[in-house]
Every structure is written in C-alpha cells, then in structure tokens.
Design a protein around this nucleic acid. Sequence first.
DNA 1: CTGATATTAGTACCAAGTGCTAAAATGGTG
DNA 2: CACCATTTTAGCACTTGGTACTAATATCAG
Lengths: 188, 188
Amino acid sequence: MKYTKKERQRLLLETLDKNPFITDENLAATFHVSVQTIRLDRMELSIPELRERIKSVAAHNFEEEVKSLPIDEVIGEIIDIDLDKQAISLLDIKQEHVFARNGIARGHHLFAQANSLAVAVINDELALTRKSNITFVKPVKVGDRVIAKAVVLSNDTEKKNTVIQVMSKVENETVFVGEFNMFRETMK
Amino acid sequence: MKYTKKERQRLLLETLDKNPFITDENLAATFHVSVQTIRLDRMELSIPELRERIKSVAAHNFEEEVKSLPIDEVIGEIIDIDLDKQAISLLDIKQEHVFARNGIARGHHLFAQANSLAVAVINDELALTRKSNITFVKPVKVGDRVIAKAVVLSNDTEKKNTVIQVMSKVENETVFVGEFNMFRETMK
DNA sequence: CTGATATTAGTACCAAGTGCTAAAATGGTG
DNA sequence: CACCATTTTAGCACTTGGTACTAATATCAG
C-alpha cells in the first residue's frame, strides 16, 4: 500500500506537475504520510510551497498573455511592409509548430503565416480570403526560419478582388507557395 | 497630491488590472493612504485579496494550457473517424478565432481544422500536405459551430499520394471547401 | 457647529507555510 | 537479537498577507 521514499518523491513531482494547486495537507492525505514527510520531500526535491508554485504559474501566464496578443494579428513578425504592394514576415519554427513524431512543421502554421500576411498587406478595413491554392514544396523543420514574401499581383476594384502571391523560403530555398484570392472592402 | 476616494478607486482597479501581484501594503504606499483604506476600497469594489487574485490568474493559465495542448494534435474535436475513409470534426468559433473588427473567423483557423482532419484520417505514420485548393464560401462568425467532414477521394499507393476533400458547414450551410493532396508513408 | 462620510488604528484570528528540535518507527547488517 | 542509520512523525515558535470586527479620528459640507 505504501510507496518507498523514492517512488513517493517521483510521484510527488508528477502529481504537482499535473496540478500545482495542492496543499501539503492534501498531498499528505493522498500519499498516506504525515504533512512533515511531504515537507521533507519538497525540501529534498526543492519544490517550492503552494503559494510560490501558484505565483510562478500566474507569472508565466502574464508573460504569455503579452506574447500571444500580437499572434492574433499576424502570425510571424512583419519585417517590411509596403501596403497594397508587398510585405515580408518571419516565423521561427519551434517545437510547438511541428509534429512530435518527425519534427516537420504542420502545414497550417505555414498557411497561417502566409494567409495573415496576405491580409496585412491589404490596405483596407475588411480583407477576407476567398480562395487559395497552395503548395508545400519542401518540409520545414524545427529551428528553421521561414521568410514569407507576399506580392500583390492584381487588384480589381470593381470586383473588390485582390490576388496575392506568397512565397516562403528557408535559407533561400522555397518551401511554400500560395496564391490567395482576397475579398476587400473599404469601410468609409 | 491626494486623490478623492472615487479617483483612487478607479486607479486601484486600473493598477490591479495591469499587475495583480501587489500587496495591500504596497498599494497603501503607492496611494499614500493606510492599509485599512485600501482594504475598505477592495471591499467596496469587491476585489479579492492578493492570493486569490494570483490564484485566478494561475487557474486561467492552467485551463488555457490544457486547451492548447490538444490543439497540437487536431484543431477541433474529432467526433467520428473511419480511417482511410472519412472523418468528422467540430470546432466552436470563439473570440480568439476572429478578427476583433468584424467578428469574422480568420481563414487559417478553418484551414487548420480541415488540414489537421485530413492528416488525422490518414492511417499512416507520416502524412504531409503537398498541395491544397481551398475556397472560403461564406464568412464564419463568433459562436458558430463548424462541422468539418473529410472524405478520402483517391489513394495512389505507388505515388504515395492521397486526395482528400474537406467540406465544412455551419448549420448545414457550406462555409469552406478544400481539396488536399497528401503525401503519405508507412514507416514499417 | 454638527452630522455624515472617510480614514486610520488596533485586536483577534486564519491558511499555508518555514525553521528548528526531538522523539518514534523502520530497516538492514553483522 | 541488538545496534545504528535512515525515515517518518510530532510539536512549537514565527511569518505573510490577509479577514472580520470595533473604535477612534479626520475631513468636509451645509
């Protein structure tokens, strides 16, 4: 019924990783040991107390929030923009962008970078993607820096239609090509 | 130098919104009033104590983390799957999926749902998108529930190529159509 | 000047700890 | 079995950042 010290400490780490919001008293109950034992364990493993754990989760969140806000605007970082003509953005491929299995970037991240850049280059209040035709030329991997370049090919003001080509490269090699048909409307 | 009660309370709200990690003592110092005054203010404005504030930020974060994890696998929720034949997924459009300006879903989220469903329906270790041709038929808005259905159209084992059609609907109306050319490989 | 409103002070108490000392239980080894 | 080390418990004083409550002052407006 009871675990060895080592096993208990391993489980303790696991448990707190899953849910850091547990008091020593609660932990003591779940492991059937005294509160003091839990405290000794925490000391040995240098696990901070409940309040500090919560604080660090909260602090982490606060940072993330700042980080995730711009993501809602454009995926990647715009490094050059000439409205209604062309724009360039940069996206560093990280662990969260790839398949765990093979480290290859998931297509929708490259699409998101290209598509949001196409939206950004349009100098109007409303820009929606109508159609797009895309090709994933070459797999992109973790650590790759993807440079996407959007170029406005044509602009039909009658039909409120703009055609934009986006070409994404990694170290000067094309990895993605897409053509986006965008609907646009000025709200003035 | 000193603010009126109203003004101080307004600033208090603002301050804590920007940074919830401040003790009453600290607040008292910054507003040049006593700790008790701050506590009365918090009561009147029903602002919880420091520890509770931190906890709620942390809890929020934790939820988000759990939410964003499955996102790495499939965007949306798979509700039916018949490997190598068809699959259906569901995505509820929330505030974070849309343009703040007009409440219309950003294209890449619909693409991500469709593309990740296309990957999921393939019964192989490796599935990568080669090409795709997509049409955003009708704008999707906040609160919409998008049902995506992926159907395997053809499967060329020689060329390791699979063609999948994904059709997404909101209340039985088509909002998105995409054709995905997938590269597949069994790693056995 | 007086009454209401706002502010400050002070006390008892709580949760979830730290830090420390000391006793008891358990476990392996000769 | 006895002995010593490791492990586990217990207990107490003290800390932070509060709540809950009472009571005394300030401050201002009519």
